[in-house]
């Protein structure tokens, strides 16, 4: 007779898997209200550490070639494919979905990574522009990553909503601090293990599980965060006001659908800044 070795679900910060700085944890229940796992309960200091890690990783990730970022994102899809069974089990246990429905959700998540991987080197081809100006200049507008993104994944989605929250942010060279759904956090935290083995530099994605009510004001108010995605928050107006103090970009809840196997180019562009350069023409 042997006892099963249960997994402790931990945070993902700077490429490592720390417990919460606060030492706290909470119980995650399955769809029948049975206790399935203990999960680290992140505190504001974990937010602080995660933002620091994201800031440190940002120049390197943005500086990687678009081709390289695309390869890394595709690698995430490959790794996710290899752990399909584990995600199916977690999703169906937490949400009560059938095996078939859970399998479809994992497929959608994998496809979404592939869809986003393709975009890394095409954003400017589609959204950049060569502007006509009166003078002997090339005038070019290109899109640059905004920096560190603080995001709240949708509360009602176990995996695909989470993927469709982080992928649009990191595609262009942003780094992200993301708070998972509180009750459906297991697949998101397991995805951290996938990211850690996908050549994604540490700190590009930082995953926190915890109470939105406790973390939101700290993450959204943090002056070193450049944009916030409030999808999973319940009180967006107050947070928007807080974000306005430091002129952050804000994505309001419900702006983008996050269930499908494809993202939305506008979602990617919402987390970018337009840079316009003038360059003298030769004669």
């Amino acid at each position: 007779m042997r006892l099963d070795v249960k997994k402790t679900y931990k945070l993902f910060i700077a490429g490592k898997f720390p417990r919460s700085e606060s030492g706290r944890s909470y119980q995650v229940k399955d769809s029948k209200a049975n206790h399935v796992a203990n999960v680290a309960l992140a505190s504001r200091k974990d937010v602080r550490d995660a933002v620091q890690a994201a800031r440190a990783a940002q120049p390197g990730w943005a500086g990687a070639s678009a081709y390289n970022r695309g390869q890394v994102l595709y690698r995430i899809a490959e790794m996710l494919e290899g752990r399909r069974e584990q995600f199916i089990t977690e999703i169906s246990s937490l949400t009560g979905k059938t095996q078939k429905q859970a399998d479809a959700e994992v497929s959608a998540a994998i496809d979404s990574w592939v869809w986003h991987a393709g975009w890394t080197d095409k954003i400017d081809s589609v959204a950049g522009s060569m502007n006509p100006v009166a003078g002997p200049y090339f005038n070019i507008s290109t899109n640059q990553p905004t920096g560190v993104v603080g995001a709240f994944a949708p509360q009602g989605s176990a995996l695909v909503g989470f993927v469709n929250t982080i992928a649009p942010a990191i595609v262009s060279g942003n780094t992200v601090v993301v708070v998972t759904s509180e009750n459906l956090s297991l697949p998101a935290l397991t995805l951290g293990e996938v990211l850690a083995t996908s050549d994604l530099p540490g700190g590009v994605v930082n995953i926190l599980s915890g109470k939105e009510s406790e973390l939101a004001s700290w993450l959204v108010g943090h002056m070193d965060v450049n944009a916030v995605d409030l999808e999973g928050t319940s009180n967006p107006t107050e947070l928007e006001i807080s974000a306005a103090n430091t002129v952050k970009r804000v994505i309001r809840p419900g702006t983008y659908l996050r269930e499908g196997s494809k993202g939305n180019l506008q979602h990617i562009l919402d987390l970018m800044e337009v840079k316009t350069v003038w360059h003298p023409k030769g004669h």
């Binding site: 937010v47 602080r48 933002v51 800031r55 700290w218 108010g221 070193d224 103090n245």
Partner: peptide, 9 residues
């Protein structure tokens, strides 16, 4: 201020 600062400030 109960807000974390960044090096930009």
């Amino acid at each position: 201020t109960k807000t974390y600062l960044g090096p930009d400030y």
